[in-house]
């Protein structure tokens, strides 16, 4: 049996990159819908149903970071940003807007596919496809349902992206224990090497904004821990 091909929304203004990357992703097992600018991307997103959005930072009409923000207003879909290492501030802004990961241009087809699959696996795992134990984790008045991708703080539901849910699950399963950025990059993002620690830092900030600032402690030089 073959798993259904993941649906990718690919928003990129350069026509050659759009065409070749779409072709490549098709050969690597994805179904790709392309859009040439931010406005068209937003319309395509609203019209269709996708598993992951792959968004270039520099886009005409609506730029990539604004597009990510607009997508996040209504959806917790996985979002991967296409950026460059030479634009470090763009990367941070994109992650703050809600992107789950980013891939630097120029990229390797297989590396891009691997990143997309990693973020999709987070969605699957979060929805219980990998047969997680399904138990609700409780830390003080924080209740986390790893399968349902939802958390409750003092009874109030908090909506989390799949990456935030995975990150919080990892922290909650090791409550009171310091997890280093390298460990979190490996367990949540599946980066063995060369993962960008800013991914962890920005996601921790976003988690704090959602569940309360003082629940996650930064341990200087070591990493983060969820306070019991």
């Amino acid at each position: 049996m073959s798993a259904p091909r993941p649906q990718v929304l690919f928003v990129e203004d350069d026509s050659t990159i759009r065409e070749t990357t779409a072709l490549l992703l098709e050969t690597l097992g994805f179904d790709v819908t392309v859009s040439a600018d931010g406005q068209a991307g937003l319309e395509a997103f609203r019209a269709g149903s996708f598993d992951v959005a792959l968004v270039d930072v520099m886009l005409p009409r609506i730029d990539g970071i604004s597009l990510v923000r607009l997508i996040r207003e209504s959806s917790q879909i996985a979002v991967v940003l296409l950026s460059a290492r030479s634009e470090p501030l763009d990367v941070v802004a994109g992650l703050e807007a809600g992107a789950d990961d980013y891939v630097a241009k120029p990229f390797d087809g297989p590396v891009l596919a691997a990143r997309l699959r990693a973020v999709l696996r987070r969605t699957e795992r979060a929805t219980g496809a990998d047969g997680g134990d399904g138990r609700v984790i409780t830390v003080r008045d924080l209740k986390l349902d790893p399968e349902g991708m939802t958390a409750r703080v003092g009874g109030e539901p908090v909506s989390l992206t799949t990456t935030e849910a995975r990150l919080l699950t990892e922290l909650a399963r090791n409550v009171g224990i310091v997890l280093s950025r390298a460990v979190l990059l490996e367990r949540v993002w599946e980066y063995d090497w060369d993962g960008d620690t800013r991914l962890v830092d920005v996601h921790i900030q976003r988690l704090r904004a959602k569940i309360g600032r003082d629940r996650i402690e930064t341990v200087r030089g070591a990493g983060y821990k969820l306070l019991p």
Partner: peptide, 21 residues
């Protein structure tokens, strides 16, 4: 050098994908 590399990136991204096909 930075501008040149920057400008090379876009065609190179397309070229990389195309070469892999």
């Amino acid at each position: 050098a930075a501008d040149a590399a920057h400008e090379l990136r876009t065609p190179l991204t397309a070229l990389t994908s195309a070469a892999e096909l």
